[in-house]
Design a binder for these strands. Structure first.
Lengths: 177, 177
DNA sequence: GTTAGTGCAAACCTTTTGCAGCTCT
DNA sequence: AGAGCTGCAAAAGGTTTGCACTAAC
């Protein structure tokens, strides 16, 4: 549970642990997923119907500024909103399938090596780093090949494991004309 | 000049090379910098006062979708807008100083290695990749150290080379209260 | 001449702000 | 008690859309 250490860190900085923040902290911590502000808000509302969207934004900013969570874009797969994750884990890259929205995380030596090289090459002090990769997952490559060959409508039959982002939000639903 | 190959690519797809697009293509190509839509628009307006901001967005989307330019966030240093660069160059990471806005580019083996590992580890087909790193450049580390030690107002005397983003846009200028 | 592209205005999504009242410590 | 937080409403930044007109091929 990272929320314990987050709580500690906040307390040290004299930040108040309000009911709203506890709810949000718990949600961010428990969900292994990458949540955006709106989703987090919807989840939080289930526990406190009065909790305001603005409080979500303010809390996220607080945690981000404090270096307790990282902000991601996930290649804007879902739109222009940001996603968040706790910073407990080791640095990792995010791999997003642009067809099905599946998100994988890649840990490993190459990332560390890259970081070290940047630090030494520029004498740079790294505070934040993020690597995002977009493309097609193994499963969707096959699907796409089939689609192209057959050019027909066939059922999907996904082999889903791990997190998958919701389909990109439909934008601009206007009044019909 | 990458604009030549961009033009070719567009022509192949039956995309019309309008006056507006030529202006924008030239600007994107010639500026070695990372431009955002608004800056690009301001520059374009100098050549064609009638050119509309919307055309800038539509052209950027066209180029992005066609894989001719890459979209960056540069760690949201300047705000939530996106930055663009032609895709001519080899893959590289962007290193952004969060204090002075200087942007450096890092080329090298570690990035290639990372890409190959991701491809083979997940059987992933990479279409886009981006690595952004935020922190303090060598120069600003020194500045910060001085600031902290002295806690005084002293002139800056920057040692600037390479691109530096404009200071973050002041947000929310409202009517005074 | 066709069809894609443009300009304009307006809308839309996401995020931030001012302010008054509420609540942690 | 009082600084910090919250909710509310409203606004702002960045981007996209509908539509009628224009221009590239």
């Amino acid at each position: 549970m990272a929320s314990a250490s987050i709580r500690g860190s906040l307390k040290e900085r004299g930040v108040r642990l309000t009911r709203q923040r506890q709810i949000l902290l718990d949600l961010i911590d428990k969900s292994g997923k990458h949540l955006d502000a709106e989703t987090l808000f919807q989840l939080a509302k289930q526990q406190d119907a009065k909790l305001n969207r603005v409080t979500v934004y303010r809390t996220l900013k607080l945690l981000k500024t404090g270096g307790l969570i990282d902000e991601l874009d996930l290649m804007h797969y879902g739109g222009d909103q940001h996603y968040y994750e706790t910073r407990m884990k080791q640095e990792h890259a995010h791999i997003i399938c642009l067809r099905c929205g599946k998100v994988e995380e890649f840990f490993g030596e190459p990332l560390m090596r890259l970081r070290r090289q940047i630090e030494s090459h520029f004498g740079f002090e790294i505070l934040l780093a993020r690597t995002e990769v977009g493309g097609y997952c193994a499963n969707c490559q096959a699907q796409r090949a089939r689609e192209v060959e057959e050019a027909r409508g066939l059922a999907d039959g996904r082999v889903d494991e791990g997190e998958t982002l919701p389909a990109p939000r439909a934008k601009r639903r206007r009044k019909q004309t």
